[in-house]
Design a protein around this nucleic acid. Structure first.
Lengths: 108, 108
DNA sequence: CATAATTACTACGACAGATGAAGTAGTTTA
DNA sequence: TAAACTACTTCATCTGTCGTAGTAATTATG
């Protein structure tokens, strides 16, 4: 299990990744992250939804509603141009981060 | 430059790494981290010293004084058995974290 | 020789992101 | 009929980071 402080800087990135190939909504993204990581990382509901708010405020995602008659109303999200640019930046940053942290990892 | 939220979960680990090969003190550790990462990561003073407090409270490091006549008095730190165990855990966790995050990184 | 820079911290308050707990509300399964 | 699942929302709290500022001693500079 991964501690939250590690992923802290990348929760937004994970969500944006999940939106790269098309719109989605909270519950689905949550499930997909869980599955993709084989339960190695489970994003908490509150973390996820507060990330949506932040991402939308920053203009990285847009919310909208589908007209669907069934089920509880979902808020769908799609990534924006700005969000894509931010995602790419984060990917670059991640490479540097890995290099940096790896210098402090000793093998035994 | 790396954002602080990324390293957040690993500042303690970086410090412990710096103590693996012997005792040191704040200012020295700070300089060494800066040099080792070629300025790619600079730990803020307040972050560093608050990390010392936390690490000592958790029993991961021990503080002591050298009897030195010169300069402002330094607080030296050494890593404990518990600290070493924690460090090793963190190294393992880091490997998993890398695998997880890398699943959300797309190459362009 | 005065002053700036460097070394080596300490105190304090603010802030952002993560989280636990709890609640709402509709749908599907047992 | 109740439990489980889907799909959120609100709120209050905690932790770690960071900006600002201050203290105090030593060393370099002009």
């Amino acid at each position: 299990m991964i501690s939250s402080d590690v992923i802290r800087g990348y929760n937004d990135t994970l969500i944006l990744y999940m939106l790269l190939d098309g719109e989605s909504y909270g519950y689905e993204i949550s499930k997909n992250i869980r599955q993709l990581t084989q339960e190695k990382y489970i994003m908490k509901e509150t973390t996820l939804y507060s990330a949506f708010t932040r991402l939308e405020k920053n203009g990285y995602i847009e919310s909208f509603f589908q007209d669907e008659s069934l089920g509880k109303r979902r808020t769908y999200y799609r990534i924006t141009r700005l969000g894509l640019a931010y995602y790419k930046e984060k990917c670059e940053e991640w490479k540097v981060t890995q290099e940096v942290v790896n210098q402090f990892i000793r093998e035994w």
